[in-house]
Design a protein around this nucleic acid. Structure first.
Lengths: 210, 210
DNA sequence: CCTCCAATGTTGCCATTGTCAACATAGCCT
DNA sequence: AGGCTATGTTGACAATGGCAACATTGGAGG
């Protein structure tokens, strides 16, 4: 059970798959991570699962709906990683730094996945409610961590949401720059990450006693 | 001259356009800004300019090459806006803040345009040299501003490139979040921007005398 | 156990799109 | 004037997303 490997393709009894929706999402994610979003074609997914091309329409409205489902799972996974880093780290400042690192690493290690989540592949207007919920939950993890640190008087008492957005923008920006190849030199990402967690606290101004 | 409006479509004398490459880029940009990247089709561009669909292949290798050219111009425009904000503002701390605002505003006002520049539509591996040059030049504007402030002892003496990446990640992140609709409430972007320029300097830690 | 229906999956088909190959036209250099 | 090359056009094709009509189940109710 701990090693699902790929989508375990059973002999296919006949017509009904049993859990096609799950298989479709898994296969889509695998393809996206392996070959990128552009390489994702409905026909290929179907063929790989052993099902016909249009079978997907019984479970998703269209291709975008599938991508939305993938993105939703992405936010769920991301949230888990953030929460783990925070809780396993002891809910202190060091744990918060680990959380930031976990965020950026998730993005760097799954660039195409991350791009599906933030690259404008899903509706911006009429957001899928599930997607919105999961995205909000991931953001919540950050807010909660900040609130804790604020309660311990380790951070300024600013509006927590606002502060969370500030931090989110920073890690999101680092992740995006990394994915887009703007930090190509070896070690550049880690170096920036290291610098960022320090500057995030004290700022970049020369004399912060003023 | 100050009002180019659309691509002024002259009566078309006959075969040769005269400056098709320019017209293609302009029309592509207009379409992207008006209807998004997905709505950009080679046939539509050609039709709108009054030229046949495949005419573009005499000036660009393929569709992506056209998008790369658009992105290149995007970085150029962005750089100009950044430099203007910095120089017209007097090259001081306030000017630097204006630069940050200019960056985010450019992205928010031209979401699809910005997405072409950073959304993975262009090669990440074998980058177009022109694109790389323009992107670097835009980054240069930020580095120069930071270096000036450092020289005036207004900022820490850290490695300027590293500091610039930090700042870039922050504004890039804010821009992306704004574009993706994660800052939907009215005024959220401006509020975050305002908060960011303050926190960028002093950090988020409670007691920054330590 | 049998019947029938709603859920699930399939095949045929179509419009759109990017791209190539072969052909057409015109500006320019000698 | 002649011709070469840059530029633009038309025809065709394969890939793709998506729809409509049809096929095949598993299971609920008798």
């Amino acid at each position: 059970m701990a090693t699902p490997k790929r989508a375990a393709r059973k002999p296919r009894r006949s017509y009904h798959h049993g859990n096609l929706r799950r298989a479709l999402i898994d296969e889509a994610l695998a393809t996206i991570q392996a070959e990128g979003v552009d390489a994702l074609t409905l026909r290929a997914i179907g063929a790989r699962i052993g099902v016909s091309r249009t079978a997907l329409y019984r479970h998703f409205a269209d291709k975008r709906a599938l991508l939305t489902a993938v993105a939703t799972e992405g936010f769920s996974t991301l949230r888990q990683k953030l929460v783990s880093a925070w809780e396993d780290g002891g809910r202190d400042e060091a744990a918060f730094r680990a959380m930031g690192a976990a965020y950026v690493h998730f993005a760097i290690e799954n660039p195409s996945y991350y791009r599906v989540m933030f690259g404008g592949f899903v509706d911006e207007e009429s957001r899928d409610p599930e997607l919105a919920t999961e995205a909000m939950a991931a953001f919540r993890a950050l807010v909660d961590a900040l609130a804790t640190l604020q309660r311990d008087s380790l951070l300024r008492g600013d509006d927590t949401i606002l502060m969370a957005r500030y931090v989110w923008a920073l890690v999101h920006g680092m992740a995006m720059l990394g994915i887009d190849g703007h930090l190509r030199e070896p070690g550049a990402v880690e170096q920036l990450l290291h610098y960022a967690v320090a500057r995030l606290q004290t700022g970049i101004a020369e004399d912060n006693a003023r």
